[in-house]
């Protein structure tokens, strides 16, 4: 008798000290393990959720009626519009720059690659708020913007502060910041497309630019989409620091209301609600894009988890 058999026989098989036959196994009653956590955890969770909601709704300081009054207040909606505009423009400009920087970092020419690396190092290294304030004060560094040839009388000379409004400053700072982070996303996504894909394209006679457009870029986008959506969500929220340079975004508008009325908490709640709505919309857009670019990644045949469930149903019946 080998070790495995004796080990089996030592166990409690409910049919005495005998290795169960196939018939035994099919006849024996099955006691499923009670998954206690599956019952208790939802109950605990519901209690916690209910307590939170009650304490929230019941809290006088929240002044829900005030929240309702300001949610669609014109000043707040204008602020919301500013936030969205800043985020969208910064993201768009940032992404274009990101692609350029990514291309620089993938260049075969050392100095171009180096410039890309320094750009990323610098704009990823400087905190966003510092970057914003420096851009805001760029007039101190370059008081006048001059167009013309060196050593000659300038053709055009403008005061920097006239040319660059706080809003433009914000877009510049956010775009550069986004370019630094986005370029890393773009670069790593493109690099993660297997070389075999490029070679297959080359082997059917595609030029490298066609290989990029038809093969590398679409596959890279699939990888980059969730990461860039994440960047966009971050960008949307980060724009709130423009309140620092008095650009009337969502937060700044709310602040200017509560500095008059002292309804601080309700207005901050209004701000929170709007940010959450924006992020929810972006999340929906993200999952749409992921599905669109990821058609080729639909799970093959059945989902193994679902299969397992079907089997356990079968044996229960």
């Amino acid at each position: 008798m080998d070790a495995a058999t004796s080990a089996l026989m030592a166990g409690d098989t409910k049919i005495g000290n005998r290795v169960p036959t196939a018939e035994d196994l099919l006849r024996m009653p099955v006691h499923r393990r009670r998954r206690l956590a599956r019952r208790t955890v939802p109950i605990v969770a519901l209690v916690v959720i209910a307590a939170t909601v009650v304490s929230f709704l019941g809290n006088e300081a929240l002044e829900w009626s005030t929240v309702g009054r300001y949610l669609f207040d014109q000043q707040i909606l204008d602020g919301l519009g500013m936030t969205v505009t800043l985020a969208v423009i910064s993201m768009a400009v940032g992404l274009v720059l990101a692609c350029i920087v990514a291309a620089m970092r993938l260049s075969g020419i050392l100095i171009v690659r180096g410039m890309g690396a320094v750009f990323v190092w610098f704009f990823r290294g400087v905190p966003l708020l510092v970057l914003l304030v420096v851009t805001f004060n760029i007039g101190l560094l370059y008081p006048n913007i001059v167009v013309g040839l060196p050593f000659y009388e300038p053709l055009v000379s403008l005061r920097t502060s006239d040319l660059i409004s706080p809003r433009v400053c914000a877009v510049v700072a956010f775009s550069l910041y986004e370019a630094a982070y986005g370029s890393e996303v773009v670069r790593s996504s493109l690099m993660s497309v297997p070389t075999g894909q490029r070679e297959a394209g080359a082997a059917i006679g595609m030029t490298s630019s066609k290989v990029f457009r038809r093969i590398v870029f679409p596959q890279g986008m699939r990888i980059a989409t969730p990461l860039l959506a994440n960047q966009f969500i971050q960008m949307t929220k980060n724009t709130s620091i423009v309140a620092y340079i008095a650009v009337p975004d969502l937060l700044y508008s709310a602040q200017s209301v509560y500095s008059r009325t002292f309804e601080i908490i309700p207005l901050l709640l209004v701000v929170t609600i709007w940010y959450l709505v924006l992020v929810a919309l972006l999340t929906i857009a993200q999952s749409y894009l992921e599905r669109r670019f990821g058609a080729h990644e639909r799970p093959r045949r059945t989902n193994p988890l679902r299969k397992q469930k079907a089997i356990s149903h079968g044996s229960a019946a």
Binding site: P194, G196, Q197, A200, A203, F293, H296
Partner: peptide, 13 residues
């Protein structure tokens, strides 16, 4: 020339 690779290398998308 046409090439057939060991790892197929079909365009995944």
């Amino acid at each position: 020339t046409g090439m057939v690779f060991q790892q197929f290398n079909l365009f995944a998308h």
